[in-house]
Amino acid sequence: MSERRKINNFVKCASGLEVLAVCLLLTAAFWFQFVMHELPCPLCILQRQGILAIASGFLLNMRYHVRPSHYSLSLLAATLTSFIALRQIALHVTTPQGYGSAFLGLHMYTWVYILCSVSIIYIAIVIGYSKQFELHAYKDEVSEARDPRIRMFSHIAFVLLVFLIAANIFSIFFECGLEQCPDNPVRYLVYGRL
């Protein structure tokens, strides 16, 4: 197997794993919502969107030729999401119990801030590996992994991402209906009206 092909397989597989990591985060958010009955507030919903936007760059790298601009999208999304999480930390920093339940001593919005910071550092390191880029290739050409197993894995990651976004849309619709979401949600507005 040529070195180019090995690098291509590795980067496509890594991109798929990165998309799956985002899916795992969203699944954890759903666990807090449906098992712990903690409905997401507007800032929590924005953080979910920001985390999904972080997956955008990895999704593009999975599907097309790897480019630094794809990583830039994820970096911008991680920066924006960290601001949103920081806002929520600042709102509750003087409250002893915080907002919502804690995991390993930290609330979800604090974990989102930490994970966004980690993802910024991670992308900064990964973007430095210049052999992965295919800058001279036709940038709009679909360029999936050459290994059929990695290609199948990336398709599964894409389907899972789409499913989780759709699930979030339904969840927000049932929580807020067609109105602005309440600041401190305690019940599903649409579900109660059915």
Binding site: I45, S56, D140, F158, V162, L178, E179, Q180
Partner: peptide
Amino acid sequence: PYALLSFIFILLAVIVAWFNRRWGVACF
């Protein structure tokens, strides 16, 4: 709700990005 609108737009962006890179980048 604006959150619902922007979530729908993210879903659109993910699906569009899978089929067309430029439009996907624009939507994201």
